[in-house]
Amino acid sequence: MPTSPEVIDDGLPMPAGGPAAPSATLGGDKKRSVEQIALLLFIVVPFAALVAAVPLAWGRGVSWLDLGLLVVMYYWGCHGVTIGFHRYFTHGSFKANRALRLTLAVAGSMAVEGPLVRWVADHRKHHRFSDAEGDPHSPWRFGENLPALMKGLWWAHIGWMFNEEQTPQQKYAPDLVRDPAIRAISRHFLGLTILSLAIPPLVGGLVTMSWWGAFTAFFWGSLVRVALLHHVTWSINSICHAVGKRPFKSRDRSGNVWWLAVLSCGESWHNLHHADPTSARHGVMRGQIDSSARLIRWFEKLGWAHDVRWPDASRIASRRKPAAVDPA
């Protein structure tokens, strides 16, 4: 059984102790050129499909089957990232039984956002240095004037992923490095990516019994879906650290961006998340939709999740900014 992570005061789960696996099991700390080329392809090709989707839908429409595949695959991968990669593996917001743990690892990998251990290591480093020197993807990296912020937004959204230096996985995710099952899922990211891209055309082809049905399902359910999910996820790094309301105390510039809430499965209530990183719910105020928290609640009721870190009223109140006092 893997060692349960120990949560320290900045919300960053780290293991209680024990030796980490050799770095060779997950690669070194620099990206090879072949990885950067593959990353470029995984960004450019789905994005080109996303751009082409508008005139294609306008001219020919999109079938209910294609739309259904897009929505189902989108939210499967999105919740795999938000509940699995983020709230569970990165922050330890709850504990899961083995079946749920492995399912979340696979679902998050099918979002095509990178291997699990690397994703977690990058995000834990982000929290350790959020919007300060050392943060892998702060939009404030180059300064605060408009040209610097525009450059920073591009960096936080996409540019940082092409940085040659990688976050040391032994340092930031040693608990996952020591887990053989999680290491195996992380190493098989390419295979899970292929599976993720193959399911829509397989279903589309079988339902319509045509190659055209397989093609349109691949276009909408694979390429457009991946591009949309990528840019929504990356917007949490860029937009949610540049704009938005900040009702809670945090040591960075994280903000709540309401119009991203449904597409981001609740992740865009980002100010509360940085004020209370281990909270299983990010949307804690009235009307704040957080589908990830709802699913975690269902997992808890089914007995699949336990020790969930739900925020109570006093915990939320302690993290609120003090109300402004009008001058006498």
Rank of each mutant, 00 (worst) to 15 (best):
H306A: 00
Q36M: 15
V226T: 14
C78V: 07
K321Q: 13
E164G: 13
H126Q: 08
D122M: 13
V262D: 02
H157T: 02
F42R: 04
E133F: 02
V243A: 13
E164C: 01
H230Y: 10
A313V: 14
V203S: 12
G17F: 08
A293K: 08
M161Q: 15
S292I: 12
C78L: 06
V120R: 01
P46T: 02
R98M: 02
R128N: 12
P277D: 02
A156M: 07
A156N: 09
H231D: 00
A217G: 09
D312N: 15
G27K: 12
L295S: 02
D175T: 01
S235M: 15
V72N: 02
G92L: 03
R101A: 10
N256Q: 07
D10M: 01
A156R: 09
A24F: 13
A217N: 05
L65K: 12
E35R: 10
W259N: 04
S138M: 10
L197Y: 10
H127P: 08
R178V: 06
S23N: 04
M285H: 03
S210T: 08
H270S: 12
V72R: 01
R141K: 10
S109K: 00
L263F: 11
A198I: 03
P46W: 04
P201L: 09
I289D: 00
P5S: 03
S254G: 15
L223V: 07
S186R: 02
I199G: 01
P200W: 02
P136R: 06
G27W: 13
E165W: 09
V284R: 13
G204Y: 08
R141W: 00
P139W: 09
A16N: 06
E267M: 15
W58E: 07
W212K: 11
A328T: 00
R286K: 09
N145K: 14
L39V: 03
P147I: 08
G17H: 10
H270C: 15
F129K: 05
V284W: 09
G283W: 12
V54S: 07
I296L: 10
F189A: 03
F162K: 01
A107V: 04
F162P: 03
L146Q: 11
K31P: 06
A148D: 15
W234L: 08
G204Q: 08
V224P: 05
V106W: 08
N256P: 00
A242G: 10
Q36T: 15
F299G: 00
